[in-house]
């Protein structure tokens, strides 16, 4: 199949970017989307033009590196898949494909389709953990955890930190990302001792980074490659209310 691409090209953080047209020729339907870009890039290099920069690593949908806005959708048209898991069979011969980087103030473009998602790491550093030092942990079976609790924890823990939630949200809100971690840890007994501190710290950092506020459009969950459910966001709010109610600070 042959495709027309319109790709956002931007030399660096401070440069002004623009869309550039490329043709992708003789692409097999079994090719992955990123492999299609590889093919285009090889041709560009041969022609002496700089290849399109994009983040990618594992190419099996788990590292969360890749992510682009493809024809108006985060990670493209395939539901429940990261960009690397999108295959060209999702497109038709002759299609025009517009490829843009994630757009959010908190995710500045570094180059072309590569954005800076370090805000996510800072949110995690603020509270996305259980404070246990190495060593001294009790036997793993000392604390039985009901199977359904464990299952619901892993539903939330499946987040790959790709940023599609932010990209798809009209408010560029990172609530799904933050809530997934809050819910993962709040659902497990090991996470309960720090639950109030954790949710307060993570929400504060999320705001500090300049993400928008969640207005429940549910776009994040719909576009999430791991299909993290909306109930994690509700859980974050419950945790937040609880943390406020229990805080020692005077009203």
């Amino acid at each position: 199949m042959n495709l027309h691409l319109k790709v956002w090209r931007q030399k660096n953080k401070n440069a002004k970017g623009k869309f550039v047209d490329y043709e992708a020729k003789d692409i097999s339907t079994d090719t992955s989307f990123l492999e299609m870009l590889d093919v285009v890039n090889e041709e560009l290099i041969k022609k002496g033009e700089e290849p399109i920069a994009f983040d990618h690593d594992c190419r099996e949908g788990i590292c969360g590196s890749c992510g682009m806005y493809i024809n108006g959708r985060a990670h493209g048209p395939q539901v429940g898949a990261a960009t690397c898991q999108l295959h060209m069979r999702s497109f038709k011969d002759g299609d025009t494909i517009v490829i843009e980087p994630w757009r959010a103030k908190a995710f500045p473009v570094i180059k072309d389709l590569v954005v800076d998602r370090s805000a996510f790491d800072r949110i995690m550093a603020a509270g996305g953990f259980i404070s246990v030092n190495t060593g001294g942990a009790p036997d793993a079976n000392a604390l039985p955890i009901p199977k359904d609790v464990q299952e619901s924890a892993i539903d939330a823990a499946a987040c790959i930190g790709c940023g599609a939630c932010v990209a798809a949200c009209k408010n560029a809100s990172s609530m799904l990302f933050v809530s997934a971690k809050v819910a993962h840890l709040a659902r497990l007994p090991q996470g309960k001792p720090e639950r109030e501190k954790r949710v307060m710290a993570m929400v504060a950092q999320m705001e500090e980074e300049g993400f928008g506020a969640c207005t429940n459009t549910e776009a994040c969950s719909a576009e999430c490659p791991k299909e993290i459910p909306m109930d994690v966001i509700a859980q974050l709010r419950r945790e937040y209310i609880r943390a406020f109610a229990k805080s020692e600070e005077k009203v």
Binding site: Y69, R73, E100, R103, K105, A168, A213, T217, E218
Partner: peptide, 27 residues
Amino acid sequence: LWWGNRVARGFSYKVNDPSENSTFFSR
């Protein structure tokens, strides 16, 4: 909220298809 959320986006998409992931009413 609306203004803060507009600022959080920063740069708009050239092509955006939110109807695929959210209801008209929510937007």
